[in-house]
Every structure is written in structure tokens, then in C-alpha cells.
Nucleic acid binder design. Structure first.
Length: 291
DNA sequence: CCGCGGGCCTGAGAGC
DNA sequence: TGCTCTCAGGCCCGCG
């Protein structure tokens, strides 16, 4: 489900109830997520205060007072929901209904402020992992991840350099988390559309002979930043079940130009949006204005 | 090293 | 209704 804008939206929803609060109890209903949770998972976080809730790529990063960091990934279908105050929730209110233990509620955090935070993930491609804060950057999950696309380190020169020797398509390169962090199928399609670049173009063609950025790299970086900013502002995209942690739906899906719009008219030329498959995943683009 | 395809899971929706 | 098939916002792994 979630790409950077959705994960960031989730982070912003969870931060007010988690930051500064203690985790007083943890229920693990199913520990067999993408990888099994460590056996002492609950014990290692019970009693910890959450000093901060951050994000790196598509991972939520909870900074714990124990010196550990809890990495949480939503996979394809993961979501969190909050019951603000377990004691005062009433039958019929949204959080109460959502708060009922469901088949796919795998991990429940009970916070010292009365809030309950539940991780739900039907497909169980999501994951949770505890690592020492000091070792986080060297963790196998983290160490190869590329720059944050909304940070200053991500610019045309950097992206061109990362793509300069790539034989693969531009689409595949942008999905590679080592090249740039946090993009997924939707926002790659959208960013390529807005930069008028074909997803089939070889990745190296955004660099000049010396590996420096050309005009395409500049357009692409601008498009990536713009689409991510706009999507975050919209609370992400709600295709099936992504919600903000308070239950609100994101609405960026209404702003898709090409994603999931096969056969529709291109918004800015007379072309028709086409769907192709690249490395096993759908790509949507306008063949007449993306070159 | 690189690039690709398979596999992990469940559920929604289309077509018959 | 119900069955079967395809597809889904991700990413690790093994192969050539």
C-alpha cells in the first residue's frame, strides 16, 4: 500500500499519541510478519518511552528510551489505527469500531496516555524490527537506502550520478530504493509523467557522458519533489484501505494523471494513457507526451 | 556487480 | 450465488 507520502501521513498521525508517551503494554497477536518478530519483542519495548517518531524511506522509526529503535514497514497492506482513549471510546464511534480486534490486527501498543495503537496488515508483507540506535545506519535494512527525495542531498547531480551506469529502465531505477528512497509504483509513474519522460527510457539517459545531470535530470527531480509534496499535503492516496491514523481518507488519488488510468485521455495532450508491464509491475504513461 | 523473475500473503473485483 | 482468475501502493532472494 504505502509509499513515502502515505508513510509520512501515518507518521504525522501517530506522532501526537506516541511521542513522549510510554509503551506500557504490547500485545503480539501474530508475530509472523514479513519476518518473525524476535521472541522477546514485547519484553524489549515494554516500559520504553517513545522519544520521537521519524521516517526513513518507507520505514517508520520509533526512537525508544531503551536505546533501541523500532523500525516498522507497512508492506503492501499495512495500516495503523488509534483509539485515542480506550476508556472513553463508545460503541458506534469510528475508533471504537476500528478498535475491535480484527483478524489482521497483529500488534497492539498500549500507551501511558490511554491511547491504543494497532498495526493491521492482511497480507503480512509488513515488518517490525528492533535495532540498537547506534547500529541503525549499518543495519541491512537501512544501509543501502538512497537519499531522501525531499532532502537537500537529493538533486539532479546526485540522481544523474546514481543512474549514469544503469542499463535498466528509468522506471525500474526510480523504484530501486538504493537510488532514491521512498518512491513506489504510483509516484514513479506520476513523476515521470510530469517530467515528460518515458518510463522505458534507459536510466543512464538522464546523465551526460561524464555522469553529470542533463536537463532531463533537472525536470525529473523537480517533478519528484513536487508530486511528493502535493501528495503529502493531500494526506496520501487512498486506493483501497490506506487511511490516516485518525481514520480520514487521503485524497491524492483524485489527482493522479496517469496511475490506474489506462485508456483515459492524457490530461495535457490528445494521447491516450497506456498500461505496460515493467519488471512485473504495471506502468501507466502517455506515449505521446512522455519521450 | 547487475538485472530480472519468482515468491511471499490475503482480498477485491471481473468474468463466466 | 459462487467459482476461478487476475491484480494489488513492496521488497528479499536466487539465478544467469
Amino acid at each position: 500500500m504505502p509509499e513515502l507520502p502515505e508513510v509520512e501521513t501515518v507518521r504525522r498521525g501517530l506522532a501526537p499519541v506516541m511521542e513522549g508517551a510510554k509503551i506500557i503494554k504490547v500485545e503480539v497477536r501474530r508475530g509472523d510478519l514479513r519476518w518473525p518478530l524476535v521472541k522477546d519483542f514485547a519484553k524489549r519495548i515494554t516500559g520504553a518511552k517513545v522519544d520521537g517518531l521519524g521516517r526513513r524511506a518507507k520505514y517508520l522509526v520509533a526512537d525508544l528510551s531503551t536505546g533501541d529503535v523500532l523500525l516498522m514497514h507497512l508492506g503492501m497492506s499495512g495500516s495503523f489505527h488509534i483509539i485515542q482513549d480506550t476508556k472513553t471510546a463508545r460503541p458506534g464511534d469510528f475508533h471504537h469500531e476500528r478498535g475491535k480486534i480484527g483478524a489482521h490486527d497483529h500488534v497492539v501498543f498500549h500507551m501511558s496516555n490511554g491511547a491504543t495503537v494497532t498495526f493491521n496488515d492482511p497480507r503480512r508483507f509488513g515488518s517490525m524490527k528492533l535495532v540498537k540506535r547506534s547500529e541503525m545506519d549499518q543495519d541491512p535494512l537501512m544501509k543501502a537506502i538512497g537519499p531522501e527525495p525531499l532532502g537537500n542531498a537529493f538533486d539532479a547531480a546526485m540522481l544523474a550520478k546514481a543512474c549514469a551506469n544503469k542499463k535498466t529502465s528509468l522506471k525500474a531505477a526510480l523504484l530501486d530504493q538504493r537510488v532514491v528512497a521512498g518512491l513506489g509504483n504510483i509516484y514513479v509513474c506520476e513523476a515521470l509523467y510530469h517530467s515528460h519522460l518515458s518510463p522505458k527510457r534507459q536510466a543512464s539517459t538522464i546523465a551526460d557522458r561524464k555522469g553529470g545531470p542533463n536537463e532531463r535530470a533537472v525536470l525529473l527531480v523537480d517533478a519528484i519533489k513536487a508530486v511528493l509534496h502535493d501528495a503529502i499535503k493531500a494526506g496520501g492516496s487512498s486506493l483501497r484501505d490506506h487511511r490516516q491514523a485518525d481514520g480520514t481518507l487521503g485524497y491524492f488519488q483524485h489527482n493522479f494523471s496517469v496511475y490506474d488510468r489506462e485508456g483515459e485521455k492524457c490530461p495535457n495532450c490528445k494521447g491516450t494513457i497506456k498500461r505496460i508491464v515493467q519488471s512485473g509491475r504495471s506502468t501507466f504513461y502517455c506515449p505521446s507526451c512522455q519521450k
